[in-house]
Design a protein around this nucleic acid. Structure first.
Ligand SMILES: NC(=O)c1ccc[n+]([C@@H]2O[C@H](COP(=O)([O-])OP(=O)(O)OC[C@H]3O[C@@H](n4cnc5c(N)ncnc54)[C@H](O)[C@@H]3O)[C@@H](O)[C@H]2O)c1
Ligand SMILES: NC(=O)c1ccc[n+]([C@@H]2O[C@H](COP(=O)([O-])OP(=O)(O)OC[C@H]3O[C@@H](n4cnc5c(N)ncnc54)[C@H](O)[C@@H]3O)[C@@H](O)[C@H]2O)c1
Lengths: 228, 228
DNA sequence: ACGATTTTGTTCTCCCGTTCACAAACTCCT
DNA sequence: AGGAGTTTGTGAACGGGAGAACAAAATCGT
């Protein structure tokens, strides 16, 4: 028997995967408000998307709604959490405990959303011994042991850009196969390793581009009104 | 004469706009290394994209390369910077000076990439008087005055999610028209205002999804090898 | 029991973005 | 000068995602 497609064979489009966490969050808010059911229209509004898109996204997971009624908030929330994989807890290591690393280590959203910081690592001996949010800062050289011990699959890079590629290489070597990179540099990894980046400067520059356009637009409008 | 399209009328696709900052960074690195010219192949490799895509992206800005030679690194860098709008300096305000706000205020990448933090604002009186990276933490109520004084167009939200929508509303009211939101919540704004979000939890959850897939895949592969 | 009403799940169409492939344009060497 | 070699800029084909629109399925009221 050929197991060509895996048993949970539904292939979920990347664009949909990126939105599932948003739906999950919106549903969690609804649960906290005591809402039992909601329509695709309501949930879409809460998530800031088109309702047709929401329904299509959910249809990739299965048929969890009831026509004429809507979705059971708690049930749908569980189904999405299961699909994403956050019903289990993911151990995470953070490398580079400077300004940003401290903020990340203190970030409560990790724990509450299915992630657990099992180690904080830094190359600088000065940093060590410090305790951030209940976790000791340890030597970067301990990476292998920690990954093996906790079965860590996800690593966060918060070092300067110059160190990011090296850290990524060491992570992959240690067995990590998903990396979230905060350093402003492109890192390359072997096939099968996922890298996502969070880049403040890029986001600001995108905003600046549109801002410039808006301002140019406003200027030419005024100019043309004057000449009219 | 109808000024239907603005004078710099080239409409740059959103996907391209999002990549221009990456090219800009790669070019800056090349300049620092003393490289005078580079081919689309080299630059694409540095930026982590396909070279055909790079060339098409650059073609929206104009024809700045030389066939058979490549691109003049410094010239192209300037052209991209101008197109994005980072040849001028953009004043920025950060609201919510907690863990993350401190890290952002200390982030050197702001200054070096065409942005200047002109104010740090917090609603908590306890925070005030503190000086972070040479800027005083001030009352959130001062927002209007600061925006007017410095002509601020870009605002960064680093408050808890519960305050984000309110902060966004106040920002827009004050005249800000581009917002970078770090709070894990959807904020809605009037037409003409751009919002971009940076969301750590979402990024981690996307990684978790793929990680789960990889692990399931590995398990079924082992299983089928055993039965084979 | 049955029609009116609501809301999902899905099909169909359009558009944007990616990639291939190649002619045009430039350099360099003889 | 001219041909060989390189590299850009772009036309064309292709794939995936967004949104409109609607049939199917459920509830509710009578
Ligand atoms: N601070 C921010 O708000 C912010 C925002 C966006 C991006 N970033 C990026 O995040 C990264 C970290 O920023 P930061 O402000 O925290 O910098 P930082 O200098 O305060 O901290 C960097 C830390 O990484 C450690 N480090 C350096 N090399 C290392 C290595 N090879 N292995 C392990 N640890 C190593 C250093 O000892 C230091 O503690 C930078 O790349 C920065 O550009 C920061
Ligand atoms: N710490 C992180 O690494 C991290 C990562 C991702 C996202 N976030 C998000 O960023 C936000 C800030 O995180 P944090 O860890 O810095 O939280 P924090 O509680 O340390 O800081 C929040 C700050 O916002 C201020 N504030 C609250 N309401 C305000 C208002 N109405 N106007 C102005 N200021 C107000 C508070 O006084 C406080 O100083 C949160 O939404 C968090 O979920 C944080």
């Amino acid at each position: 028997m050929s197991a060509r497609t895996s048993d949970s064979s539904r292939e979920i489009p990347e664009a949909t995967v990126a939105r599932l966490p948003i739906y999950l969050r919106a549903l969690t808010t609804l649960v906290e408000q005591g809402t039992a059911t909601c329509s695709s229209e309501e949930l879409a509004a809460a998530a800031g998307v088109n309702s047709a898109k929401l329904r299509k996204d959910l249809s990739y997971l299965g048929s969890y709604g009831t026509r004429g009624v809507g979705y059971d908030v708690d049930y749908l929330r569980y189904q999405i959490a299961r699909e994403i994989g956050v019903t289990q807890d993911w151990p995470v290591v953070i490398v580079g405990i400077g300004n940003l690393g401290h903020a990340l280590a203190n970030f409560s959203g990790f724990r509450s959303r299915g992630f657990r910081v099992v180690a904080l690592l830094d190359a600088d001996p000065e940093r060590r011994g410090e305790r951030v949010a209940g976790v000791d800062v340890r030597d970067f050289a301990d990476l292998d042991a920690i990954v093996r011990e906790h079965g860590v699959a996800i690593g966060v890079i918060a070092t300067p850009a110059s160190a990011a590629q090296d850290v990524a290489d060491r992570m992959v070597e240690a067995g990590i196969s998903s990396i979230l990179n905060f350093a402003p540099t492109v890192i390359s990894v072997a096939d099968g390793v996922d890298v996502r980046k969070v880049d403040l400067s890029i986001e600001l520059q995108i905003l600046a581009y549109h801002e410039q356009r808006k301002q140019a637009e406003a200027t030419t409008r005024v100019a043309s009104e004057v000449t009219a």
